[in-house]
Simulated scan of single mutants.
Amino acid sequence: MSDAPQILTIAQWSRGAPWRLNLPHSQPRHALIWVTRGQARATVSGLRRGVGAHNALAVPAGTLFSLDVGPGCYGQVCLIAPDGPALMPDQSEHLRIREVHQQGELTSLLEAMTREASAARPFADEAAEALAIMVTVWLRRALIGQAPAPRLSAAQRLVAAYAALIEQDHATGQPMADYARDLGVTPTHLTRSCKTCCGMTAADLLVQRTLHAAREGLEDGSDAVRHVAAQLGFGSAAYFSRFILQHTGLSPSELRRRARKA
């Protein structure tokens, strides 16, 4: 994967497979999502929020998130390497851009990135980097005018900590109860907090992150099914196969075969 900034529509980002965005996962690059039409629902660090037209959502690299895109929703995403010159926030940010001139500025910058990507001109990577820097300057300027985010509740802080642990340790295969123990709460309390903050149980959040990793390993990789299972902490290939069948209706081999044909 090139380190050059990349501009995609949300539809292109999903690569025609909604699970790539609507299952919890993380990205290796920072993402600035700009929705210009319709509605979406994002869950970032275990906290769910609505994302409407002229909303910008900044998601730092390595942050657990998902994006459910509603009918008729259109937007773009700018993907930026975390070690480059374009400076993105260290934490997620959700901006509702009401000023028309601010909306136009960001849209123009993203359109310029799209033109550079499609024209394949000399020094395109340098041009993309320069435009990405301008996009992040726009973001930091827009943040100056935003009202301070409300302080997180105790439940939100707990769920955010749980989401961070999931992203760090989901491949170990440890059960949700172990995460609750590490966080110093009961599984019941963790589940109640997750349902309040993101509408799913603590176990479901962990299962969905594991499912994303499993589908990625099967559909994008070439490792044997048993190796994918081992990489995700499953005790046996048979257990992994039952997990995939339960959540997709297909066996691992059939899931991989269909992805290759798509």
Rank of each mutant, 00 (worst) to 15 (best):
M1K: 04
T9R: 04
A11V: 10
A17R: 13
L21G: 01
L23P: 00
P24N: 06
P24C: 08
Q27G: 10
P28Q: 03
R29C: 03
R29Y: 05
H30I: 03
I33T: 12
W34R: 12
Q39S: 08
A40H: 04
A40E: 02
A40L: 09
R41E: 14
L47T: 02
V51Y: 01
L57C: 03
T63M: 10
P71K: 07
G72Q: 04
C73T: 11
C73W: 01
C73S: 02
Y74A: 15
Y74Q: 14
Q76D: 09
L79H: 03
D83C: 05
D83W: 11
G84L: 10
G84T: 11
L87S: 07
P89I: 04
S92R: 06
R96V: 14
I97A: 00
V100W: 01
V100H: 00
V100A: 11
G104Y: 01
L106R: 04
L109E: 01
R115W: 12
R115P: 03
D125K: 10
I133F: 10
I133P: 01
V135I: 08
L139A: 04
R141K: 14
G145S: 13
A154G: 08
A155N: 15
Q156V: 13
Q156A: 15
L158I: 10
A163N: 07
L165Q: 15
Q168V: 08
D169H: 14
T172Y: 03
G173C: 09
G173E: 08
P175V: 13
M176S: 09
D178P: 00
R181I: 06
D182Y: 11
P187A: 08
L190D: 04
S193M: 12
M200P: 00
T201M: 10
D204E: 15
L206M: 14
T210Q: 15
L211R: 07
A213M: 08
E216L: 11
G221M: 03
V225L: 05
G233H: 08
F234K: 08
G235H: 11
A238E: 14
A238D: 13
L245K: 13
Q246E: 13
G249C: 01
G249H: 00
R256D: 00
R257S: 13
R258W: 02
